[in-house]
Design a protein around this nucleic acid. Structure first.
Length: 329
DNA sequence: AACGCGACCTGCGAGC
DNA sequence: TGCTCGCAGGTCGCGT
């Protein structure tokens, strides 16, 4: 399932294929994949036709393509609904993508048969040696595409990771905090806001408004690496502990990114949910009943425990991530 | 206001 | 064999 590293792999792959190209055709094969576009599939299609892709930007697990209205540029800046502004092609609208649980963005040649779960097809202006189509494939339909405005960021910094960062952010991603791999991520701000919460540490890590990009897998992995229990009280967290778990999150995501980045040269924008990283490097997630590797290295036998948590699961080592007593440490 | 849970989805594996 | 059920999880919206 795509978390931050997988989405970043997609961003890097996608940018070389789509930047500067114009969207010449749009097919919505399943309207549920554009349900977050409030004005419906017809509006989605109409506003995307003729738009030129300026960049591919990511914050947390949100990915968006700032667009210029190619027809407006050609006709000297005439604005159309939802299109470019009067300055002629400057981006104020973006195509937003969220991969949800199972979404994929694939570059495909026209003759490649439709994928079983193909939901949306974008045709792009011809470019030498590049596939014609950008396809959104999604089995479980938690993800989707929609159009959103670009607005100024709250802190004046760039909206997200991009080739040419803009001080604008997709409106639908503006409630999302910066992610730990963002050069403008502020630990001080994170720590202050963490302490202001009265909740458990894992809940906080999964809250995209506090820090983005961390999902259930990386939360468990980061907590294991930092030797912290998921129920640790956030309002009493010591700075050093908060730093340790943030560093751990950065570490596991950087490792996963390195592992997932090996297939950039593939025609596909790789969003294979289980990048090789998962099979090899997980220490907690999905390892219920197996030995904690860190404890084993110290000659201690301790089995990873899985508990119900937030309608999902939390994996911990009962020895090196002991549960706090009364939330106090 | 902040927190927390259910709904949204489909495929798969376990159990009967 | 074929059915049902539970589980997986990111995000939004609503109830508390």
């Amino acid at each position: 399932m795509p978390e931050l590293p997988e989405v970043e792999v997609v961003r890097r792959g996608l940018v070389s294929w789509v930047r500067g190209r114009t969207i010449t055709g749009v097919e919505v094969l399943d309207p549920r994949s554009v349900r977050r576009h409030a004005l419906g599939p017809a509006d989605f299609i109409g506003n995307l036709q003729g738009a030129r892709v300026l960049d591919v930007v990511r914050r947390g697990k949100f990915l968006w393509l700032p667009l210029a209205d190619a027809s407006a540029e050609a006709s000297g800046g005439a604005s159309t609904a939802g299109g470019a502004d009067a300055s002629g092609g400057a981006a104020n609208v973006a195509l937003m993508a969220h991969l949800g649980m199972s979404g994929q963005l694939l570059m495909q040649d026209a003759e490649v048969p439709d994928e079983k779960h193909l939901k949306i097809r974008l045709r792009l202006s011809p470019a030498a040696g590049m596939p014609e189509q950008l396809r959104f494939v999604d089995q479980r339909i938690f993800g989707g595409l929609f159009l959103t405005s670009l607005i100024p960021t709250a802190d004046g910094g760039p909206g997200g990771l991009a080739e040419t960062p803009l001080p604008l952010i997709a409106e639908e991603a503006s409630h999302i905090a910066r992610d730990p791999l963002d050069p403008h991520f502020s630990f001080d701000l994170f720590y202050r806001r963490l302490r202001a919460r009265r909740t458990g540490l894992k809940r906080a890590l999964l809250d995209q408004g506090l820090v983005s990009g961390i999902g259930n897998i990386y939360a468990d992995e980061a907590l294991w690496l930092a030797k912290l229990h998921y129920a640790r009280a956030t309002d009493r967290m010591r700075r050093a502990d908060a730093e340790r778990v943030l560093d751990a999150a950065r570490q596991v995501m950087t490792d996963a990114l390195a592992a997932g980045g090996t297939s950039f040269d593939s025609l596909y924008v790789n969003v294979n949910g289980s990048s090789g990283y998962f099979e090899r490097s997980l220490n907690a997630y999905g390892r219920e009943g197996q030995e904690c590797r860190r404890c084993a290295a110290n000659g201690i036998v301790s089995l990873i425990k899985r508990e119900q948590f937030m309608n999902r699961s939390a994996h911990t080592c009962p020895v090196c991530q002991p549960r706090p007593r009364n939330g106090r440490w």
